[in-house]
């Protein structure tokens, strides 16, 4: 469904994504793991068509990503990106104006679940509220692929469960959910596949339950094994 071939992005001397070949299929919740600066965000931005690769290509359903794929791939960046003049209601209207797969009803339902009011100004939201609002409006799209960059950042424990529920509800056999995180434990139970990135390179792809059955290792164990002793890299 979503595939990158020899995907590379260099920022000056630093290579953020380094010849990554990755194939992601529908019907899965996939965790993209790695410390900050391992290339998760850059990979996603290229797949979202927001950022042009230095070399290599991302394909969505066989076609290189671009204007058309944006109609089917819902991307949520980890940083707040709403216009500062918007209320949460405006944000919903904006998505409604531009995305045919957006459902205002679903948006209201998710805002309710996250205990957010439509009248709130995005400028005044706390970081936790902003994180929830971003997820609500992104999941309100009936997209084919959702890419959520660090969906649990800045969110308290109770809200994390709400978000996981929303993510589980969105999952379906013809949909792909890709989530990046460095909070590995949060991904453990809801993801069924995991890919590990390190310094821009794809290190490992695993089926989470198979990995547990065969090695007795959780992905948190795996994460410690791969990145053990390595502190956060330069972002």
């Amino acid at each position: 469904m979503l595939r990158s071939e020899e995907l590379t992005k260099a920022f000056g001397a630093k290579t953020a994504v380094d010849h990554v070949n990755l194939r992601l299929e529908a019907g899965h919740i996939c965790a993209m793991l790695g410390p900050n600066g391992s290339g998760k965000t850059t990979w996603m931005k290229m797949a979202a068509g927001l950022c042009k690769p230095t070399s290599g290509t991302v394909y969505f359903e066989g076609e290189p990503v671009g204007v058309n794929s944006r109609a089917s791939i819902a991307y949520m960046s980890t940083e707040p990106y709403f216009y500062t003049w918007m209320t949460l209601k405006d944000v919903g209207r904006y998505y409604g104006d531009f995305f045919a797969d957006y459902s205002a009803e679903r948006y209201r339902e998710l805002l309710d679940r996250f205990e957010l009011e439509e009248g709130l100004k995005t400028k005044t939201l706390s970081s936790g509220m902003m994180a929830k609002a971003k997820i609500a409006v992104t999941l309100a799209r009936d997209a084919k692929v959702w890419m959520l960059d660090e969906p649990f950042n800045g969110i308290d424990l109770v809200a994390r469960d709400r978000i996981k529920e929303a993510i589980i509800s969105a999952a379906a056999p013809d949909k792909l959910l890709l989530m990046s995180s460095h909070l590995v434990e949060e991904m453990e139970s809801i993801a069924d596949r995991a890919v590990f990135l390190r310094k821009g390179k794809l290190i490992k792809e695993v089926d989470i339950d198979t990995e547990r059955a065969e090695t007795g290792c959780s992905i948190a164990d795996e994460y410690r094994r791969i990145y053990g002793g390595q502190e956060e890299e330069d972002a």
């Binding site: 979202a48 068509g49 927001l50 204007v67 058309n68 944006r70 109609a71 991307y75 960046s77 940083e79 707040p80 990106y81 709403f82 216009y83 500062t84 904006y94 531009f98 995305f99």
Partner: peptide, 13 residues
Amino acid sequence: TRQGYMLYMTPNS
């Protein structure tokens, strides 16, 4: 700025 995501994530050339 990040605001650009809002514009360039829409399916418009």
